[in-house]
Amino acid sequence: MHMTKHLPNILTLIRVALIPVMILFFYLPFEWSRFMACWVFVAASITDFLDGYFARKHKTFSKFGAFLDPVADKLTVTTALVILLQDHPTILMMIATAVIIGREITISALREWMAELGERSAVNVAMVGKVKTVFQMMAIGFLLYEADLWFIPVYQIGLVLLYVAAGLTLYSMYVYLRAAWPMMKE
């Protein structure tokens, strides 16, 4: 039981620890390095799913976990987007990266402000936020992998998924801001 209680937080800490590993693999000068960076990102994404799953299954919620989980998510996604942007600095990649990172900062600040007002539940995670996350994780995985797989243009698919994720990001930010708007007008 003791290990089960701490498993979600351990998985979240592993996700944070995987960030420098992903960076290292991304920049290693080997043919297989992007492949490994992709798989480290996939492993981090799986820990994101598993920590929530185990926390719900075993009803082991902690204040530390509630703080660390979204921070780990944002650090992982932001780091991956920044290294991808640095690797392919195009205007569309910059716009998508700025939209996704800007939304994360905006919604984090909004949630903190709403919590101070005692209205935290007004900006709970919406389904569009979950769908956005799925597109975002798939896009980043494809972009990190980069190489074509047989006849499949992996990087181009990743770009399309990233643009869809950016659109969903804007929409989800609108949903959160609309929910908070009544308190903002006061």
Rank of each mutant, 00 (worst) to 15 (best):
Y27V: 15
I91W: 05
A80S: 12
G141C: 15
V128A: 12
L159G: 06
N9Y: 08
L92C: 04
P70H: 05
F135A: 12
I107C: 05
R15D: 13
G141Y: 05
G158N: 06
F64D: 05
S121P: 00
L75I: 08
T76L: 15
A147Q: 12
T169H: 04
P8N: 11
H2R: 14
T12R: 02
M183L: 10
M93F: 14
I91Y: 02
W181H: 14
G102H: 08
G52Y: 01
S62Y: 02
M127C: 00
D48W: 00
F151S: 09
T79V: 14
G102N: 08
L50S: 04
T133N: 04
L81S: 12
M127L: 14
A126Q: 12
L84H: 07
F135E: 02
P8K: 10
Y155M: 09
Q86N: 07
A147V: 12
R111A: 13
V164T: 13
A96F: 03
F25N: 06
I14D: 07
M22Q: 04
T106K: 00
M184G: 02
M114Y: 02
L68R: 01
K57R: 15
L177M: 15
L7M: 14
G158H: 02
I10W: 11
M127P: 05
E104S: 14
F41E: 04
M22R: 00
M127Q: 07
D73H: 06
F67K: 06
V134H: 03
V71H: 05
A37G: 09
I10H: 09
K59R: 12
G158T: 10
F49P: 06
L110P: 10
R103I: 09
F41P: 02
I100N: 00
V16G: 03
L143R: 11
A72S: 12
T97D: 10
I100R: 01
V82W: 06
V154R: 00
K185E: 10
K63H: 11
F30K: 05
A96R: 01
G102T: 12
K63I: 06
W150R: 06
R56N: 10
M1E: 13
P8H: 10
Q86P: 00
A98V: 15
M22V: 08
A139F: 03
A37D: 07
R56I: 07
F30A: 12
V123G: 01
K130I: 10
A43V: 13
L177Y: 11
F30G: 13
V131P: 01
Y171C: 03
M173A: 15
V160G: 08
L50M: 11
D69G: 08
G158R: 03
M173N: 09
